[in-house]
């Protein structure tokens, strides 16, 4: 590198630049948090939705599925599964309940989690809430 560009100049760019952009990141994050109520469907977060998120986490659903495009890519996207299943919570519950314990020969299968009726209702409600978040029109179509 050029001799006129000294190490202390490089150091100043590092400290100055990093600090500057860190502050901008914090600023933008703060702004995002303040405008989120218009987009994140928080008015529909009921105790049932909260339980649903807990069920979602306690069974590591993200280990196979994506939710709003994040997670594993082994099983379908669930951010819009409520729409895909015809806006039917019963259809979601029915699918989860009916998974065979020993799987399907040769095929991928969701495990049987033996969820209680309350947990099934909660997870369906959580997925409904997730589907109503404003995601800038993602996914591109109903298939997720």
């Amino acid at each position: 590198m050029n001799q006129t560009f000294t190490k202390s100049m490089a150091r100043n760019i590092f400290f100055g630049g990093s600090l500057f952009f860190l502050l901008i990141l914090i600023g933008l994050t703060t702004h995002t948090v303040t405008v989120l109520p218009d987009r994140d469907n928080r008015q529909n977060i009921t105790p049932e939705v909260a339980l649903g998120k807990k069920v979602w986490e306690d069974n590591n659903c993200i280990g196979c599925h994506t939710l709003l495009g994040e997670g594993a890519y082994f099983a379908p996207e669930l951010g819009n599964v409520y729409e895909r299943f015809g806006r039917s919570k019963e259809a979601i519950k029915g699918f989860i309940k009916s998974r065979p314990v020993d799987g399907i020969p040769g095929r991928r299968s969701m495990p049987q989690f033996n969820l209680s009726e309350e947990e099934l209702d909660a997870i369906a409600e959580f997925l409904k809430y997730s589907s109503e978040i404003d995601t800038n029109n993602w996914p591109p179509n109903i298939q997720g």
Binding site: K7, R39, N136
Partner: peptide, 27 residues
Amino acid sequence: KWLYVIIAMALITGLLGTGHHYFFIGT
């Protein structure tokens, strides 16, 4: 000197680069 320049570019681009994860998650 190289090290400083590299990590400067890493953080200058990478900090706000976080935004590429904020496209479709409700942000």
